[in-house]
Structure formats: C-alpha cells, structure tokens
Simulated scan of single mutants.
Amino acid sequence: MLPIGTIVYLNEGTSKLMILNRGPILAGETEGERIWYDYSGCFYPQGLDPNNVFYFNEENIDEVVFEGFKDEEEHRFKKIFNDLKEENKPNIKKGTVTGPLK
C-alpha cells in the first residue's frame, strides 16, 4: 500500500497521477452494491479537479515516480486498513480496472 502523496504512472498512462485516497468505496451498478478500489488519484501537478478523479488498483500501477511521506501513523493505518478490508470482504467487492476510469 502506497502512502497518500505518492506520484505514479499507470499502465499505458501518459500523465502522472498523485494518490489522494486509499480504499475509496463507490456505489455499484445495482442498488446497495458497493465497490472499492485501492486508490483514487488526480493529475499531477494540477491537483484535485472533481471532474478528473481516477480510481485504480495496485496492479494498474506501472511506475512509482515518488513515494509519499510515511511515519508511525502510516504504519498503524496500514494495519487497521488491512484488518477492515478482511472484515468487509463479503460485503464490498473489489473493483477492476480495464481502461480509464473516472
């Protein structure tokens, strides 16, 4: 799991993205369905534009250009987050990315 602020290129991507969020949950296609992704990101260096937020997973990352800040809180967050992911596996399915996704 990469920290917030990390700059990446996605597979077949031509623009850098900065990780904004980890584990975003979106509404699915059916009522009550929830889908999570590993990350959300925005274009770098432009920053957040609500019309250009991208959702992607670890396997979609081609290259890490810069790794964001980490401290002891980051390590604690990773443990708590991984525990929550395991607890909620039956309730929230992981999204897949097959092309550009906003």
Rank of each mutant, 00 (worst) to 15 (best):
N21H: 13
P24R: 07
Y37Q: 02
G41T: 03
I35H: 06
Y37V: 02
L17C: 01
G23F: 08
R22N: 11
I19H: 09
S40G: 09
L20C: 06
E31W: 11
K16A: 03
W36R: 14
L17P: 00
L26P: 00
G28T: 11
L17W: 09
L17I: 04
F43Q: 01
I19W: 11
F43L: 14
G32C: 09
T30S: 13
R22I: 09
N21M: 09
Y44S: 09
C42D: 02
G41A: 06
Y37H: 06
A27R: 15
Y37D: 00
I35L: 10
M18W: 00
K16W: 02
P24I: 04
L26T: 09
L26H: 06
Y39E: 01
G41W: 04
I19S: 08
G28A: 12
L26Y: 09
P45H: 12
L20D: 05
W36K: 10
R22Q: 12
P24D: 02
L26R: 14
G41E: 02
W36E: 06
L17K: 12
L20F: 03
Y37P: 01
G23R: 07
E29D: 13
L20Y: 07
G32R: 12
K16R: 10
D38S: 11
W36N: 08
W36S: 09
T30L: 12
W36Y: 15
L26N: 07
L20I: 04
K16G: 01
I35R: 07
N21Y: 11
G41F: 04
P24S: 04
T30I: 14
E33Q: 15
L26D: 00
M18H: 00
R34A: 09
Y37R: 05
G41L: 06
S40I: 07
K16P: 01
E29C: 08
R34L: 15
G23C: 09
A27S: 15
R34W: 06
E29H: 13
G41V: 06
